[in-house]
Amino acid sequence: MLFGAIIAKPQPLKLIPLTIKQIHVVGVQSLLIVVVSGLFIGMVMALQGYTILVSYGAEGSLGPMVALSLLRELGPVVTALLFAGRAGSALTAEIGLMKATEQLSSLEMMAVDPLRRIIAPRLWAGIISMPMLALIFSAVGILGGHLVGVDWLGVDSGSYWSIMQSTVDWNKDVVNGIIKTIVFAFVITWIATFKGYDSVPTSEGISKATTETVVFSSLAVLGLDFILTALMFGIE
């Protein structure tokens, strides 16, 4: 099914407009929850981090602490979990309902491959949207950290940004975070579309498939995060 959906003879002229529409559905419509979550997580991290760092007189390191935590871990992982809960479950439910109402069968009988028409655009939309959502999450989280750390708790703004700039490494921190996000995006979207396509076409079957999408995706993200972190940042 995976081969049929994304590898076998792509049809760009038809795939691109459908993918753009799906990017709006899974990406743009997930923005609100990603931005709000990123803001609050950044704010909480700054609050918690400050209380510990200030006891060592190292509150100037609040900026890099927030940035590294978000870029390396929280950005990819929390975005993935939010994506699985919001977009992943919606994908599974949508495809499952299409199966239950015979829309997928009618596509087959109209000589249109449902894997290319329905599954492939959603798969690519997830893979394209999630890294961007994770970066937005991290950016908003850093701003949230600045809001709490600098504006509220009085950390020096220059320290916040300058130490962050000198500490955060593009390849080691930002690119590795993006790589994690792409892997998570592929796994979540694949689980979501497969669960929908394979669901029993009843209300109970779709409900079960939707729940399994969220649970399996979340566990897969956490497991893969450990493996990727060990590979990327493992003890040398």
Binding site: T101, E102, Q103, S105, S106, E108, M109, M110, A111
Partner: peptide
Amino acid sequence: FEVRRQMSMLFQSGALFTDMSVFDNIAFP
């Protein structure tokens, strides 16, 4: 798939695509 273009099926539920208007449903094939 080529042969299926010579046949069509009216499903019990109709199986119209719910995200398209009636016009777009018929224009789809």
